[in-house]
């Protein structure tokens, strides 16, 4: 489903990632770890198309990502980062619905019906606050709402850059549990960069650790040993 082939990434003459090769055939929760500044975010941004590939290829469903049209890519990979949303006067439910944007042009009104938005809200325990405005909810709830937005985007690949930064411990645990279940049941590839290694070790199915420009891949947590 997702394949990195001889991928190298450079930023301003500095090589951040060198010759990364891995192939993921089926869904799973991939945990990406590495020190601050090691290039985790750069790798994820390159995967979602925000940064260019220096060398090598990223292949999704047997096609290089560079051959995907912009909208098509939006229906294939969803992205969550830790950037805070400054908007105050929109409802949680409307924020979540923005995830259907990539489908609006092809399906129009149906775009909002054919994914289980209520189910996603329930899974993230956002039901009770779905009609609240963003200035009435906590940072953690806001973060869960942006994660719900990405789940509603309903893509085979989900890329998350430290999605748990603002969450309390029970919410973090809930989230990892949910991500694992979604990855395995719906056969999604979820790549999650995180510093919550203890929780990640319990729920992850595959572990990528980035150190000295190289990524080591394992089915056990290998971070910081």
């Amino acid at each position: 489903m997702l394949k990195f082939s001889k991928l190298s990434i450079q930023r301003a003459d500095t090589t951040l990632i060198n010759d990364f090769n891995v192939e993921t055939e089926k869904g799973g929760l991939i945990i990406l770890t590495g020190a601050n500044g090691s290039g985790k975010s750069t790798l994820l941004k390159t995967l979602v198309g925000l940064l260019p590939i220096t060398k090598g290829e990223i292949i999704i469903n047997k096609r290089a990502v560079t051959n995907y049209a912009h909208e098509e890519r939006a229906r294939t990979i969803a992205y969550v980062n830790a950037q805070k949303i400054e908007e105050a006067y929109i409802r949680v439910i409307d924020l979540v619905r923005l995830g259907r944007y990539p489908y609006l042009k092809v399906q129009h009104e149906k775009a909002l019906e054919d994914v289980n938005i209520a189910g996603v809200l329930k899974a993230l325990s956002l039901e009770a606050i779905q009609y609240n405005y963003l200035n009435e909810i906590s940072d953690g709830e806001l973060q869960k709402s942006t994660i719900a937005r990405a789940l509603v985007q309903d893509t085979p690949i989900l890329v998350m850059d430290e999605p748990t930064a603002f969450l309390d411990y029970p919410s973090k645990k809930e989230l990892f549990k949910l991500l694992r279940a979604m990855a395995l049941e719906k056969n999604k590839v979820i790549i999650c960069a995180t510093h919550d290694v203890e929780l990640a070790a319990i729920f992850g199915t595959e572990f990528w650790h980035l150190e000295n420009k190289l990524i080591s891949v394992s089915d056990k947590s290998i971070a910081w040993n």
Binding site: K45, V48, G49, L50, H70, E71, R73, A74, R75, I77, A78, Y79, V80, N81, Q83, I85, E86, E87, I90, L95, L98, G99, Y101, P102, L104, T146, R149, Q153
Partner: peptide
């Protein structure tokens, strides 16, 4: 207005939702 409303998610995320 439609693309601008997506950009409340931040420009990076909006880009990955298909907004140029």
């Amino acid at each position: 207005m439609k693309p601008l409303s997506i950009m409340i998610l931040g420009n990076d995320v909006a880009y990955t939702l298909g907004v140029k």
